[in-house]
Design a protein around this nucleic acid. Structure first.
Length: 562
RNA sequence: GCGCUUGUAGCUCAGCUGGAUAGAGCAACGGACUACGAAUCCGUAGGUCGGGAGUUCGAAUCUCUCCAAGCGCGCCA
């Protein structure tokens, strides 16, 4: 509906230009807003105020010209008005709103989807946890935001590739291997032979036991058999990585999060991509040697200091394979790439982008894009639960899902914008009460389904493609408000995708559920008036469908009973 | 010290690329079920949008500055 209003204004502007009532050569973008106050109509437009200066006319005068050219928009509008300093307010005809229900019906499960993205390729990298331990709550937030973002982008018409990057080649992996080896040899963390900064979690003991037992591990795209020899560090390393990848895969599966592509850092070395990056950067003259190390002049690209690429010991720092990885992404044809990460990795952004710029292969400055989420604190019984991986005190994603359920966990992780810190109150998430927004929304869906059962018992059918005569029964303020909200789902999804802010969808759902509950409490659905009953059943069918479609984009179920 | 993020009602948070009288949930108070699910609804009360300055027709939103919190600032990832 918003788009239809926008194109009405655009053609009106064109007509006014042709008639030489307006003279500007550069038209501003037409922005259609929704007034906070319903007395100001269904939609509003501020373009007259924006154009006033260029036209050397009063805003209201410009608005008058636009409105005159607009007419009633082929019957879409009952009224337009000029208000305040120069707003144009649009009042959409009830018949147009009622008819929008038919579109929702015909689109079915795909209602909410649009072709805004034009089928263009976008790659979203998220989670990308090191395979050195199980996924914790912070990864959970990243998984929920990243996965929902993918679903939202997909619904907005993008061709989405979901990707997980494994840092399986650095110092932390060596550390992991040494920790497992120590456990294999029966060395305890308080033993002087225990590796410095070794991983102390209980799961390390499990990996060691499994390795010594010669077990086989199936991870997403490889299977690894334990060698069983505690002296074979290489074998331990690859086994431990495979073992933890399998754990992470299971955690993600329990969360209903899936990936299309897994990229391993080690592969970038074996394919020679890392060396190639170093050669290219050196050939481009952006590097220098100092203190036995090779540096990249990232300060030429906005960094606050230069960064080491090759350490004095000959190894590369992590950001070199990162640059190689992103070069590969670029070469795979992703004009857009989005990285969802914890904000604690913020400093890598400038570095990676600088490295990509220094390659001089035509990558835009702002590529890739980033979504950073802030920290999560976990509350239980009014107390903060501390997370420490090395000490092994730990709230894993798996524990959380097992305890509060997948639906509530996903909802809680995405109901705040990524920029804001999140307090995850386990007690609240577990509560099946009105304080819990997940149940509020799901209850609306279940309640509607219950009405349908009741209607069926009384012999009422939900009509398909009802006549305008039937739809014309839907005239109360609550009914029209509900219809308007239903029609807003596609716009909401487009906005979520444009701003990388899936939390907007949770607010939309809460508002939609609230609107339904208000309607329900004021109006009887099943009544003596058969035509009205049919119309209202039809409205609720579209409401249930919209709730379900939106919930499904969040990866949350729409139960028929609860 | 520098960088990024955040600061809105007692609490937790929205506020749609600058728009009209700043919203919701919880908590508080008062109401609504012998008819479709009360896990619901209706009403009341509650705010110097962290402080200050600036930009313009118009600022919670943009700029600057100060204050406070979180996270970074490694030849770790």
């Amino acid at each position: 509906m918003r788009n239809r209003i926008a194109s009405l204004v655009e053609s009106s502007l064109q007509a006014a230009l042709t008639a030489q009532e307006l003279t500007t050569s550069t038209l501003p973008d037409v922005i259609i807003g929704t007034p906070a106050n319903s007395e100001h109509g269904d939609f509003s437009c501020n373009i007259a105020m924006q154009m006033a200066k260029g036209e050397r006319k009063a805003p209201r005068q410009v608005a008058e010209i636009i409105i005159r050219q607009l007419g009633d928009g082929q019957g879409l509008l009952t009224r337009t008005e000029i208000a305040g300093p120069g707003f144009i307010n649009f009042f959409v005809a009830p018949t147009a709103w009622q008819a929008s229900l038919l579109e929702i019906e015909s689109q079915g499960d795909s209602f909410g989807r649009t072709t805004t993205g034009g089928g263009k390729k976008v790659q979203v990298e998220f989670v990308s946890a090191n395979p050195t331990g199980p996924l914790h709550i912070g990864h959970g937030r990243g998984a929920a935001i990243g996965d929902t973002l993918c679903r939202v982008l997909d619904a907005a018409g993008w061709d989405v590739t979901r990707e997980f990057y494994y840092n399986d080649a650095g110092a932390q992996i060596s550390n992991l291997a040494l920790s497992v080896q120590s456990r294999c040899l029966g060395i305890e963390p308080d033993d002087p032979r225990w590796p410095a900064d070794g991983y102390q979690g209980d799961y390390i003991r499990e990996v060691a036991r499994s390795y010594l037992a010669g077990e086989t591990v199936e991870a997403s795209d490889q299977h690894t058999v334990a060698d069983g020899d505690p002296q074979n560090l290489d074998a331990i390393r690859s086994f431990a990585v495979a073992w933890l990848r399998r754990e992470q895969d299971l955690d993600l599966a329990a969360f209903d999060v899936r990936f299309d592509v897994y990229t391993l850092e080690s592969g970038l070395y074996t394919e020679g991509r890392v060396d190639a990056v170093v050669r290219q950067l050196t050939a481009n003259g952006h590097t220098y040697e100092q203190d036995g190390a090779l540096w990249l002049r990232t300060t030429d690209f906005g960094d606050d200091k230069d960064r080491v690429m090759r350490k004095a010991d000959g190894g590369y720092t992590y950001f070199v394979p990162d640059v190689a990885y992103h070069q590969a992404k670029w070469e795979r044809g992703f004009i857009r790439a989005i990285n969802e990460q914890g904000a604690d990795h913020h400093s890598t952004i400038t570095r990676v982008r600088a490295g990509l710029q220094a390659l001089q292969i035509g990558i835009p400055q702002g590529w890739p894009e980033y979504v950073l989420h802030q920290m999560v604190t976990v509350m239980r019984g009014g107390q903060e639960v501390k997370i420490s991986k090395r000490a092994g005190s730990y709230v894993t994603l798996r524990d959380l899902i097992d305890e509060v359920g997948r639906d509530a966990t996903r909802f809680f992780f995405i109901m705040r914008k990524p920029d804001a810190q999140l307090v995850f109150d386990i007690d609240l998430a577990k509560q099946q009460t009105n304080e819990n927004p997940v149940y509020y929304v799901q209850y609306a869906h279940a309640r509607i389904c219950s009405i349908f059962e009741n209607a069926a018992e009384k012999g009422f059918l939900i009509p398909a493609g009802p006549t305008p005569d039937t739809l014309a029964c839907l005239t109360t303020a609550e009914e029209l408000q509900l219809i308007k909200l239903l029609a807003a789902l596609p716009d909401t999804i487009v906005d979520c995708a444009a701003h990388f802010e899936p939390h907007r969808l949770t607010y939309y759902l809460t508002e939609l559920a609230s609107c339904f509950h208000s309607f329900y409490n004021k109006n009887r659905v099943i009544s003596e008036d058969h035509n009205l009953t049919a119309a209202r059943l039809y409205l609720l069918k579209r409401t249930a469908q919209t709730l379900k479609n939106a919930l499904s984009i969040l990866g949350i179920s729409a139960p028929e009973r609860m």
